[in-house]
Design a protein around this nucleic acid. Sequence first.
DNA 1: CATTTGACGCCAA
DNA 2: TTTGGCGCCAAAT
Length: 87
Amino acid sequence: MPTQSFKEKVFRVVRGIRRGGVLTYQEVARRAGNPRAARAVGAVLRTNFNPAIPCHRVVRSNGALGGYNRGVGRKRFLLARERLSEL
DNA sequence: CATTTGACGCCAA
DNA sequence: TTTGGCGCCAAAT
């Protein structure tokens, strides 16, 4: 029985994504224990405004960025910035 | 407890 | 390549 809600597991997974790296919603769902809950992952991340949880590093499996609760432009910016600093 | 809501994913057309 | 439709699921209402 789940001592942690799905929400908590998602945050734990996303908190572990390192700078310059990205995960798909699907992969986050898998790591959180429910491979078919990709959509629900979005619903959870949508409520996150904690900077310690880098939810901008979660993208769609088709290569598109996906959404962001502070504007997609913001998400693009953060990712571009991290990609550059990786080089 | 029943419904609605979408930061998703897959596939046929 | 792009679109529409549908299945899926946790959260919110």
